[in-house]
Amino acid sequence: MPDPVSRQGLAQMNRSLLVNPYVLIAPGFILAALIILWPLASITNIAVHDVNRFGVLRDYVGFENFQVIFADPEFLGALRRTAIWVFGIVAGSIIVSIPVAMILNADFYGRGLARVIIMLPWAISLTMTAIVWAWAMNGESGMLNSGLRAIGVLDRNIQWLAQASTAFPMQILIGILVTIPFTITIFLGGLSSVPDDLYEAARLEGANGWQVFREITLPLLKPFVNIAVVMNTIYVFNSFPIIWVTTQGGPAKSTDILVTYLYKLGFQYGRLDDASALSILMFVLLLAFTLLYVRLAMREEKA
């Protein structure tokens, strides 16, 4: 039997630990800060210096590295494509996910199976997905061409990755496919929080399907759409494997986005200083977008 006094003392101590929020957040904060702030500081430091390709700091150069990035026509091209890439995937996945989530929210035979299938892309690493698709899009041996030929859509092979006009849309399509599971999960969560009697009531009042969707479902989904936009934008903006594995940003840089441009700058061309400056720029860009979007979304909600 434990001594009652010391046990009480222990409880006292435990309680004080439990009610001290700083103690509670400390482990999480320290770990996250170490792994995130320390590298951020180190990158910021590199970004304002002239640095050789092995990261040895030389002179302080202020914003010169940033100017180099802004003056690089490839940066502007990559920026433009990043905008298309992010918008295409985020919008595309939301447009597909809303109806699919509605179907999956209703009861039907095999719903469990359908949910599992549609969630599957989530279970594969993006790198592996991209490797499989790159192989499937191979102009000669790829099963995409042979499949489309078999069902009569194509009468000759397409070299999917030979030019941006086919490669980039396919990359966006793959991006949409892998973004859908997360988006649908969020929407399903939203839909399941809608009480059924709301629909019953609407139907009793004679509203048709479209009206129910517009007047009830969509407004209820709105906060969830906002979450999907913010989370997916962050994720897609930083997404690297799809483009890297399929085209490495080529041919002739025509599918380069900011992350692949960053990777080339830093690790292929050895321009660590410019790459660090670009890292900071990308972070600021994303931060600005997110803050702007959250603010707009909140204002709309209030209005």
Binding site: I35, I36, L40, S42, I43, F283, L286, L287
Partner: peptide
């Protein structure tokens, strides 16, 4: 959440 590993990778490696 907005800092992806790829943006930080140079600094992370040094750490």
């Amino acid at each position: 959440q907005m800092l992806s590993p790829i943006v930080l990778v140079i600094g992370l490696f040094r750490l």
